[in-house]
Amino acid sequence: MIDLHGFGHQLLQGALVTVELALASLVVGLVLGLLGAAAKLSSIKPLQWIANIYTTLIRGLPELLTVLIIYFGATTVLMSIASLFGYDEYIEIGAFAAGVTALGLTFGAYATEVFRGALQSIPKGQHESAVALGMGTFHKFYRIILPQVWRIALPGLGNLFLVLLKDTALVSVVGLEDIMRKANIAVSSTKEAFLFYLVAAIMYLALTVVSMGVVSYLEKRARRGLTRG
């Protein structure tokens, strides 16, 4: 076995933080993506503008900068908004919350396009038949539209998740104790840069492989209605 100088346990803890961060950002990002797609497809012009500004801004900014801006800027902005409502307590945005916000926003901007494509690809007839069957808006969306959007969007979303997983490393810059930061700390005290960065790389690869497995399982599941014919 390779000698990790007692930092093995720390690295595993870091892996847990990385996974938590990725999953939390995924949830936020999926919701933002659906919202963004809905806004882009809506007939209300201001909603379209907001969604377009959102995706253009986020997709043009380096993720590292997004993380830094949210980490240092969000508290100030949130507190000034809160004080408008007469709330003067201090609002804390830790490294984790800042990471989730920044990565969620990034994932959401790219997912907006994926969802938009998927929503548009559902034939109008499907909407009409659902209505003809007497389904309400919610029912139609939940039972007919969403399962199909999910199937069509999955490969794209899977790719985005792999990008997200790697972007989590950037949050180490603002002090979140993920794999990357744990590796940095280990290098500081042992001077074994090559060893620890390689171990970090292997851990990310392992997470990537697991994610790819999950995505392909989900894809198979989402397609089951099709293959049975």
Binding site: T168, A169, S172, M180, F194, Y204
Partner: peptide, 23 residues
Amino acid sequence: IFFFRGTPLLVQIFLVYYGASQF
């Protein structure tokens, strides 16, 4: 392709810059 797409760019930079110079 698997290695470079499966690991963060930040790790790759540190491997090249600090990792290689260790030897």
